[in-house]
Design a protein around this nucleic acid. Structure first.
Lengths: 137, 137
DNA sequence: ATTTTAATATTGATTCCTATTATTATGCAA
DNA sequence: TTGCATAATAATAGGAATCAATATTAAAAT
């Protein structure tokens, strides 16, 4: 998104509440989940508005989109560099803090003749809870 | 996919040709691209068949799905551990060979109480070609 | 006045449904 | 064994349905 578009962006209560909702949680809700939750306080908010503002916030770099590769997109209000773990059983998305995010980009940039601006790292497997369930059965 | 299901899997010419097509290229085509290409030799192959077999092959671990986070899924027939770079301008998906794939999982597993089975690393930015175009203008 | 909203319509990717076809397994005869 | 007919079952084709996401547009808000 260009500077022009950014500065042309007016305040909106809906966008504000989407941002606040996201930064107030550590899970990584989908557009649908956000929509359902916000509707409790703002019964007239529309799903289209949620989608549009999630895109806007992502473009502005205020939130991150997480593609799990299976099902709808998830969103994360925490912009601190970190990775994600996606459970193949319960499909939860969890934070995974490793201090190698910068290092990754640096190493990759060494033998790549383009401009790397960011990276996303997703780990796949079974989360602690699901692992226990599998062990029990 | 379990052994039982695997052994129940009958041969199909369509699945064979999808696999062959994918391993024979170094780009990372979408389902639509694969469908269009295969139809030249097999005019009756259906898009549904392509999708179903791409899912099957992915589950069997014979190919990889690449979620770019923008637009349709891409597929990769090369199972050697490597990363991907996605150009935000031309949307091409390119291989990026770094020898840290195993290391990544090991480091992440240290402070995660679940079972990490794999990871996918996507880099974002401008590819060499697009960078040149931007510099020129 | 211009942007934002809300509601609707539309798009695009993927999955589902089902009658038909292809592949594999079985039985029997040569 | 081999060959062939037939049965059993899985896979396909084609279209319809679904789901996420975007575009449109008239009305509301700033």
């Amino acid at each position: 998104m260009s500077e022009m578009l950014m500065s042309a962006l007016k305040y909106s209560r809906q966008r504000e509440s989407i941002k606040t909702f996201l930064t107030g949680r550590t899970d990584h809700p989908t557009a649908e989940v956000i929509y359902t939750a916000l509707r409790e306080d703002q019964p007239h908010i529309s799903l289209g508005t949620v989608y549009r503002n999630l895109s806007l916030l992502t473009q502005l770099g205020e939130i991150r989109k997480i593609s799990t590769g299976d099902g709808p997109e998830h969103y994360d209000g925490d912009m601190t560099p970190h990775h994600h773990f996606i459970c193949r059983h319960c499909h939860r998305v969890m934070d995974l803090w490793s201090d190698d995010a910068d290092q990754l980009v640096k190493v990759a940039s060494r033998d790549f003749h383009g401009q790397i601006e960011g990276c996303s790292v997703n780990f796949y497997g079974l989360c602690e809870d699901c692992l226990k369930k599998f062990d029990a059965s």
